[in-house]
């Protein structure tokens, strides 16, 4: 009986929410109201950036992105702190059986290509789809492949920590430079160049490259920490 009531209540709730969310009518007329049009217009006219998503993520709402980068940083820090006791025997891994030679040689071949793709994605973040978060994640998958394929593959934890810290510091410093030059944090202080060229958009590509480095270092660190966890 109790279960029946719960199911009934859940059904009513689901029906209600379904009606509400279907009624939102994504893509309809009223979605043109508000700030959207101004974003589309100012991305091209004032920032000279070809990718509106990038301009919103890095410039209009760059403060949010700084926050999100911090969230990732804290998550990596927290994971390292919690798994600390278990990490005393560095060098031994929780994956015990060796990889086949196919995986080993294949990943060696793929690794540079993956890194190159990742770098391409975050360097061209302001021109084509993708950006720092995506590029950084691609690079981290490259390291994941190597860590899975080779028992003795190791990444220097100190190096990762330094890359991650420096990227974060430069992000904040670029923001502060905007603050000093134009009076508001993260404001663009470099010439915006011409639309659709690699050197356009002022600080936007620089910030996205820094985010790429930071995300790559953090995710690699997380993978490394979890992979070497030992009970």
């Amino acid at each position: 009986m109790k279960k029946l009531i719960v199911i009934l209540l859940l059904a009513v709730l689901a029906w209600d929410l379904g009606v509400i969310f279907l009624g939102l009518n994504f893509g309809n007329e009223h979605f043109t109201e508000g700030v959207k049009d101004q974003y589309l217009e100012k991305t091209v006219t004032e920032l000279n950036v070809a990718n509106t998503v990038t301009s919103i993520v890095v410039n209009f709402r760059g403060f949010d992105t700084l926050g999100e980068v911090t969230v990732l940083f804290l998550a990596a820090t927290a994971l390292g702190g919690i798994l600390y006791k278990k990490r005393h025997h560095v060098g031994e891994r929780s994956v015990l059986f060796p990889s086949s030679s196919l995986v080993m040689s294949g990943s060696k071949l793929l690794f540079p290509a993956i890194i190159l793709l990742g770098v391409y994605v975050f360097v061209h973040g302001h021109l084509s789809p993708g950006g720092g978060f995506q590029g950084g994640t691609i690079i981290a998958t490259g390291f994941l492949l190597m860590l899975l394929a080779y028992d003795n593959y190791s990444v220097s934890h100190n190096l990762l920590s330094i890359v991650e810290s420096l990227a974060g510091i430069f992000f904040v410093v670029i923001g502060l430079l905007g603050f000093m030059n134009h009076g508001t944090f993260l404001e663009n202080f470099l010439p915006t160049g011409t639309l659709n060229s690699l050197f356009s958009g002022g600080v936007i590509p620089i910030v996205y490259i820094l985010i790429g480095f930071k995300v790559a270092a953090e995710l690699t660190g997380v993978i490394y920490t979890v992979l070497h966890e030992k009970d």
Binding site: T70, I162, S165, G168, I169, G175, L176, T184, F185
Partner: peptide, 19 residues
């Protein structure tokens, strides 16, 4: 804005300074 930015800067700096 410095109430948020300075601590963030410090948080990124601490791992380096700790070395």
């Amino acid at each position: 804005v410095l109430l948020v930015v300075i601590p963030l800067l410090a948080a990124f700096l601490i791992p380096l300074l700790g070395m």
